[in-house]
Simulated scan of single mutants.
Amino acid sequence: MNLGVVFVAIDLDAQIYAALEQYFDDGKWNVDANESGVNNTTRFVSYGNYKFVMRIYENHADLDKVRFEYSILQKLQLSKLPFQIPKPVRALNGEYYTLMPTGKISILFEYLEGTRAVLTDKGHVTSIGSAMGALVTALAYINVGLEAAYEPYYDLYEIHPLVTREKLTEWLLSMQEGQYKKEAMLLETEINNLLNNLSNLKQLPVQLVHSDLVASNVLTKEDEVSAVLDFEFVTPDLRAMDAAVFINELIRYHSDRWELLEAFIKGYAETADLNTAEIKALPQLILLRSIVLCIHFLGRQWAGIDPPNDSEPYLDSFVKVHKWISLNQERILKLCYLCFEQEVSE
């Protein structure tokens, strides 16, 4: 199986060198690996007194997806956001991306100051909530006139080209024959519940959303959000989905820290809104994030990007989130109704 993209086996350093030659013609740059994201390869580049960040796309080699992301960033630069967003640098040929010898796409961004947000820091989480609300509000007014690069979260069989309905069904059945029997059965049940409730979900407000606004995609300075990163997955989706994504992360890593969840929701409510129907749907949307992570990383595993069985931790995580929601659904709904000044839904 493959994604229809053939990448030539070339040393990564040689690829990066070839890409940077398309930005600087004298070879006087330095590259630092430092850190890298889950989905893409990241390198930090210094050139004279300037610093940049290079992203090498590993999920795809689709220029339409890159064009959509770039158009969103261009439009958002005109919005009066209280934080910075990535700014692509034009190559010597005037393009805002480069094609590497392997066929992979890379983009060089201006370096943004700040340190990664800390998910256990209540002040950071409050600021993330407020920043997310401001971003969601700004994205509601963005229209780039291009076809969206990704489908909404609830389009489960469009998440990864290798994970079709048939293949996912086969995988779930195979997992039910091994040590992950209970987990796979629960995942199958919740997928069916979601599909049965789609008509109701599709009545909720829809707009452009970030889709992956987690702590690792946020920079902070002096305890305030200074930048929001990684707009690769921006797409029209349910407005409440960004909030659901971050709450999901809090549950996955710090399920016992209710004060963090409360801080995030209060911060978000300062700059954005959720209506009664959105709040009622929030538990299912939080769980949807975990379902999508299972499918996304299963696809990466089948594509050979990730090692075998790399999707199993996400299956464990799905079960953890499901259990938390079962125990805390009423409490989180009451908190949201209060913070967003909505009447309690029956």
Rank of each mutant, 00 (worst) to 15 (best):
I286D: 07
I332W: 03
E330Y: 09
L293V: 13
L315Y: 14
V321T: 12
G304Y: 08
I291G: 06
S326R: 11
H322G: 00
Q301R: 09
A277G: 04
P313C: 09
I291T: 09
E343L: 03
E330G: 07
G267E: 02
E346P: 04
S326E: 11
F318Y: 13
L335K: 11
F297D: 01
Y268F: 14
G299E: 02
G299K: 01
I332N: 08
Q342D: 09
V344D: 13
T271A: 08
H296W: 15
I291A: 08
N309E: 12
S290C: 01
E270S: 08
G299P: 02
Y314Q: 02
C336H: 11
L333S: 05
C336M: 15
L298Q: 10
Q342I: 13
L335C: 11
C339Y: 08
L333G: 03
I295G: 06
L298H: 07
L288G: 04
S345K: 05
L285T: 07
V292Y: 02
N328Y: 13
I291C: 04
E341D: 14
I291L: 07
L261A: 00
V292F: 04
W302M: 09
W324F: 13
R300S: 10
L261Y: 02
Q342N: 13
R331E: 14
L327A: 15
R289K: 12
H296V: 13
A269M: 08
S311I: 03
L333F: 01
P308W: 07
N309P: 00
E278N: 05
N328A: 04
A272R: 02
Y268K: 03
L282Q: 05
T276W: 00
T276V: 06
A303N: 15
I305Y: 14
D273C: 06
L285H: 11
V344H: 12
F297E: 00
P313L: 07
A272T: 05
L338P: 01
Q329D: 10
Y314C: 03
W324I: 10
N328W: 04
L315F: 13
P308A: 08
V344Y: 11
F318R: 09
P283V: 09
K320P: 02
Y314S: 03
K320N: 11
S311V: 07
S326L: 14
P313V: 05
V319P: 01
G267I: 06
A272Y: 06
E312I: 12
V344T: 12
L288I: 01
D310Y: 13
D310F: 12
Q301I: 00
L298P: 04
Y268L: 11
V319H: 04
K266N: 12
V292L: 05
E312H: 10
K280Y: 14
G304Q: 10
R300T: 13
F318G: 00
E343K: 06
L260S: 04
R289N: 12
K323F: 13
H322Q: 12
K334W: 00
S290D: 01
E270Q: 15
K266R: 14
C294N: 05
E341H: 15
N275C: 11
C336F: 08
D316Y: 04
P283E: 12
F264M: 10
